[in-house]
């Protein structure tokens, strides 16, 4: 494997940037909305349908299921929330596991933020963009934003987030209403789409050697860490796996 050139996150504009020149802010936003109709958007809608069905099983109302989707916009947090409530866990236990799942959003926000900074960035824009940072929107931002001129990046990402939010709300309501109607194999396929999409997107977006090492480290370390310390597993997998990958890549690249 040939080590990639040292990767610089806000990459210089590529030729792709030319086709974005002269577009209005609303046109850039609308192009972001359209991402909801691509494969990742449809997968996320399908995953949301799975969540809607789960939430109904746990006894939540349709409104509260859809509201939870909008308020958290992060399926793992919602799933543990529903799971805790269904098991009758205390409110503080529920809040603790939700906050543990939320920690993973921190590094994702850190690495996407440099792309969102631009001449049109505002604090409100950042807060809105931050709310949209969950795996799917993060992944799409990560893949798409480097190819845009800097002034369009925040508007485009807000479009991506708004479109994906819309499709998750519709997906949740659909799943809620259709729960129990679809055969289990169909539900299983819906749940399977998300991890495959996540992994392939990580592979597609891996630009630096450290990215590839980090994917391997996460894949290898994730399962044993989950078995040893469920609840803290994602955080620990990220910290341990990411640190090993970081130093391994630096060591490898330092060699002549």
């Amino acid at each position: 494997m040939i080590p990639a050139d040292d990767y610089e996150p806000p990459r210089p504009e590529t030729d792709d940037a030319a086709e974005w020149r002269g577009l209005s802010r609303s046109a850039v936003f609308r192009r972001g909305l359209a991402v909801a109709l691509t494969v990742p958007g449809l997968i996320l809608a399908a995953s949301s349908a799975g969540f809607g069905a789960l939430s109904r099983d746990a006894g939540f109302s349709l409104f509260n299921s859809v509201f939870m989707m909008a308020a958290f916009f992060a399926l793992p947090a919602q799933v543990v929330m529903v799971d805790q409530m269904a098991r009758g866990a205390s409110l503080s236990a529920g809040a603790l596991v939700v906050t543990l799942t939320g920690i993973r959003l921190l590094p994702m926000c850190v690495v996407l933020m440099p792309y969102l900074k631009g001449p049109r960035a505002t604090r409100l824009g950042f807060l809105l963009a931050g709310h949209f940072i969950a795996v799917t929107a993060w992944m799409e931002g990560w893949r798409r934003l480097p190819h845009l001129p800097a002034e369009h990046r925040l508007d485009h990402f807000l479009g991506i987030g708004t479109g994906l939010l819309g499709s998750t709300l519709i997906g949740t309501a659909f799943g809620y209403e259709l729960a129990g109607v679809v055969p289990p194999l169909v539900s299983a396929v819906l749940l399977f789409l998300t991890p495959v999409y996540f992994l392939l997107s990580l592979i597609a977006a891996a630009a630096a050697l450290s990215d590839r090492y980090a994917i391997v480290a996460g894949v290898v370390l994730g399962p044993p860490i989950y078995l040893l310390v469920p609840g803290f597993d994602l955080l620990l997998t990220g910290l341990i796996g990411g640190t090993i990958a970081h130093f391994a890549a630096r060591h490898r690249e330092a060699r002549p």
């Binding site: 996150p9 799975g50 069905a53 789960l54 793992p76 799933v79 799971d83 993973r104 590094p107 994702m108 850190v110 690495v111 795996v135 289990p184 194999l185 539900s187 299983a188 819906l190 749940l191 399977f192 998300t194 991890p195 996540f198 992994l199 990580l202 891996a206 630096a208 450290s210 990215d211 090492y213 980090a214 994917i215 391997v216 480290a217 996460g218 894949v219 370390l221 994730g222 399962p223 860490i225 989950y226 597993d233 994602l234 955080l235 997998t237 990220g238 910290l239 341990i240 796996g241 990411g242 640190t243 990958a245 970081h246 890549a249």
Partner: peptide, 24 residues
């Protein structure tokens, strides 16, 4: 931080596949 985020999502993938919830 970039490596941490990447490893974390890769770990999430394995958890969703090896220890799934619901119909899967």
């Amino acid at each position: 931080v970039r490596s941490v985020a990447t490893a974390l999502v890769a770990g999430l993938v394995m958890r969703l596949i090896l220890f799934p919830a619901g119909a899967l």
